[in-house]
Design a protein around this nucleic acid. Structure first.
Length: 714
DNA sequence: AGCACGCCGACT
DNA sequence: GTCGGCGTGCTC
């Protein structure tokens, strides 16, 4: 009797392939194990997801599994079902997701090595060859090369085809050999069992919260919470919960944004959890990450701390999943295989009957909404700090640094107090606004700010593609429209140096190397910088010395991005920047903006998340944006725009046929319409339920071949 | 993804 | 007339 295996491969196709399990492997083939299988011309590492006794596709000749790579499955059945749901939800390939959950050395592939045959050597001498053939053959004269190397070295189109022609003629030999299979490493046994020191003094509310969540961990059934409150309070609750989880002999998974995984935090975990904690994040070297992965797999780590990809930690007996700083967008992996670790944490916790805890001081609107509605919001808010804030209307000012600012900054400098100046990275393109009534042209259908296109003098909606000629005069009041003057931080830095020539001014942005960035930060933290100017990057720092004056310049830059969450992002950015204010009553923030009355700016200044939430929510409800709808953003990328436009249109026609209950915006140019010469076209779909989108997208997703990125908003 | 096949445009 | 572009389909 023949045994068949359903195998998932790390390809952008979601179907399983059936292979015959050869006689000697029948005992060792298990679901969740890696296998080596022949696939077309090459060998790939695949994953068995199921075994069956009968061929599902009689008539089709099946190939045999070449090798089974695992004695024990690398994936448990619960992990398989979790990862499958995750890939379904985010329209990404299951196989690629499985591949991404393993250390890179676990994936074996055949390598093509090319060598010149004797006949080939002879041909170089006396045969008539084309230029390209000569080029390839003479290259192989030196030594054998891999296909990949040749591709990089000789920029020839259709190299593969050329090579297979040469192979047929017997001039080159193409060998496909496996990369060396790594021996499974035996792990050093770590003997020390550090005693946990998790005694924390919690205030009454935190204690109550911890108790409530602990009860849920004990119950071992899926429950979720959103911890809303400041970082220190959340942290003490987390440690309490981890302790609880370990008490009931369940493991804990603790996710953090990459940036938060600083040295300080790492030490904290090591000190408190010792050998029981494993760390997984992208800054670890490949070998270190593999070592940690193996430790977790072997059951040696009881707590796994890590960033986004730690979601795939090989654990099954999880009692607690924590996702801290849930608002952080780095939880969403946009590159293939794309997924959102926050949703993933939900799927995993649910599948395992674990307790899920999200935490944030500034949760996403959607997350806060759901938590409130479904009763899992836990409030850790302390007494609300009133901060001294002043909003300056920049429209009345000539220069980026207003006179008032000059005065305030010089006061601080006189007292040798540090000053932080934030300026959000300027947009990729400008927009128009009326300097009189302040109105900014928006798309009527999407209520998104229209982007100014210089070349064809038009205003374009990057959401739905709507386009209109540039208005010279304001449609509301008839005055002349102005182009926003977008300033970068370099200009501000220059201006500050100009005004305060005695001061030490430095700036921080992503265009600096990592070393330079650290240099700038160290200098500021040590008091060797008087004024530090920075973008969002500066606002994301965790170990920044507080300043007694925080200057926020033009936060409306975010507000004018073509994104339905622009207000939310503005509110959060301002709040975060203000969090760097020192504790004294003397500390002060100054916001300089052309939109001083916008609710996101006003409410961020008064530190009022709840009012902001309510106001923003009513806007979302009005325009049917998440959390009142499900939204899927599809980005098509390709060499030529014409072709892309056609493909995206055809894609949309199929979606339209699939369901009448989907609102389609676009196709239109993406917010960044061209990246390194590649055109980008985007479509946005809205529906009341995710399943409506899933059903309508299933078919078009499989058949459309253009490169596409899908973002799911809920 | 990687590769083969097949149908339309610019050229030895 | 052919070469070769990429649009399409398939891989167990």
């Amino acid at each position: 009797m023949t045994l068949y295996a359903e195998v998932i491969l790390p390809l952008p196709v979601s179907q399983a392939f059936t292979y015959i399990v050869p006689e000697p492997f029948i005992g060792s083939a298990r679901a969740g194990s890696r296998v080596l299988v022949p696939f077309s011309q090459r060998m790939l590492t695949g994953f068995i997801i199921g075994l069956r006794k009968r061929s599902p596709t009689p008539g089709i000749p099946l190939k045999e599994i070449a090798e089974i790579l695992d004695g024990e499955p690398v994936f448990s059945s619960s992990f398989l079902s979790f990862s499958r749901k995750l890939s379904d939800y985010f329209y990404s390939s299951w196989g690629e997701l499985l591949q991404a959950s393993l250390p890179p050395s676990f994936i074996l592939k055949s390598r093509t090595r090319l060598s010149l045959t004797e006949k080939g050597t002879a041909a170089l001498e006396d045969r008539v060859l084309s230029e390209e053939e000569k080029k390839v053959l003479s290259f192989l004269q030196k030594k054998d090369y891999s296909l990949l190397f040749l591709k990089r070295r000789l920029h020839l189109k259709g190299l593969s085809a050329l090579l297979s022609r040469l192979e047929k003629r017997g001039l080159v030999e193409i060998q496909r050999s496996m990369e060396r299979i790594k021996k499974k490493r035996t792990l050093p046994v770590t003997g020390s069992q550090a005693q946990l020191e998790l005694d924390f003094s919690l205030d009454a509310i935190s204690r109550q919260t911890a108790d409530r969540i602990s009860a849920s961990i004990k119950s071992r059934s899926f429950t979720r919470f959103l911890l809303y409150g400041p970082a220190e309070k959340r942290e003490s609750v987390y440690f309490q919960l981890i302790k609880k989880s370990l008490e009931v002999r369940k493991k804990a998974l603790f996710l953090l944004p990459e940036i938060a995984l600083t040295q300080a935090l790492r030490e904290k975990f090591e000190k408190r959890l010792g050998e029981r904690a494993a760390l997984l994040h992208s800054r670890l070297s490949e070998s270190k990450r593999e070592l940690e992965w193996l430790r977790i797999k072997e059951g040696e780590a009881e707590v796994v701390v890590g960033s986004r990809s730690a979601l795939f930690a090989p654990l099954d007996d999880i009692g607690l999943v924590i996702v801290d700083e849930e608002q952080d967008e780095s939880y969403y992996q946009q590159e293939s295989p794309s997924y959102d670790a926050r949703k993933g944490a939900w799927l995993r916790a649910k599948g395992l009957g674990a307790t899920l805890v999200y935490g944030s001081a500034l949760p996403r609107i959607s997350a806060f909404f759901r938590a409130r509605k479904r009763g899992y919001l836990v409030n850790l808010e302390g007494k609300k700090e009133r901060k001294k804030v002043e909003i300056i209307d920049s429209r009345r000012e000539r220069r980026a640094i207003s006179r008032k600012l000059v005065v305030r900054i010089s006061e601080r400098l006189k007292n040798k107090e540090p000053v932080l100046v934030f300026l959000n990275r300027r947009g990729y393109a400008s927009y128009l606004f009326c300097s009189e009534c302040n109105s900014v042209p928006r798309c009527q259908r999407c209520d998104i700010v229209l982007t100014f296109h210089k070349r064809d003098k038009s205003l374009v909606c990057h959401y739905c593609g709507y386009s209109t000629p540039v208005a010279v005069d304001c449609p509301d009041c008839g005055r002349r429209m102005s182009r926003s003057r977008a300033l970068g931080i370099e200009a501000v830095e220059e201006e500050l140096r100009d005004i305060f020539p005695q001061s030490r001014v430095r700036s921080l942005a992503t265009d600096l190397s990592r070393d330079e960035q650290e240099n700038v930060l160290r200098s500021y933290n040590r008091g060797n910088t008087d004024i530090l100017v920075g973008t969002q990057l500066l606002a994301r720092q965790t170990d920044l010395r507080p300043a007694s004056l925080v200057v926020i310049l033009f936060p409306e830059i975010i507000l004018t991005l073509p994104d339905y969450r622009a207000s939310e992002r503005t509110f959060r950015a301002i709040s975060r920047m203000m969090s760097f204010l020192g504790p004294g009553s003397d500390a002060e923030a100054i916001i300089q903006t052309a939109l001083p009355d916008h609710f996101s700016i006003r409410l961020a200044a008064s530190n009022d998340y709840r009012s902001f939430f309510l106001e923003e929510l009513s806007f979302r409800r009005l325009l049917n944006y998440p959390p009142f709808s499900h939204l899927v953003e599809i980005l098509f990328q390709g060499e030529n725009l014409r072709n892309l436009a056609r493909q995206s249109r055809r894609f949309m026609e199929r979606v339209e046929k699939g369901s009448a209950d989907i609102e389609i915006l676009g196709p239109g140019l993406a917010p960044v319409p061209k990246v390194r010469g590649r055109a980008r076209v985007q479509v946005i779909l809205k529906a009341s339920r995710k399943e409506i989108l899933d059903d309508a997208l299933r078919e078009p997703m499989r058949t459309a071949r253009a490169k596409k990125t899908v973002l799911v908003h809920e």
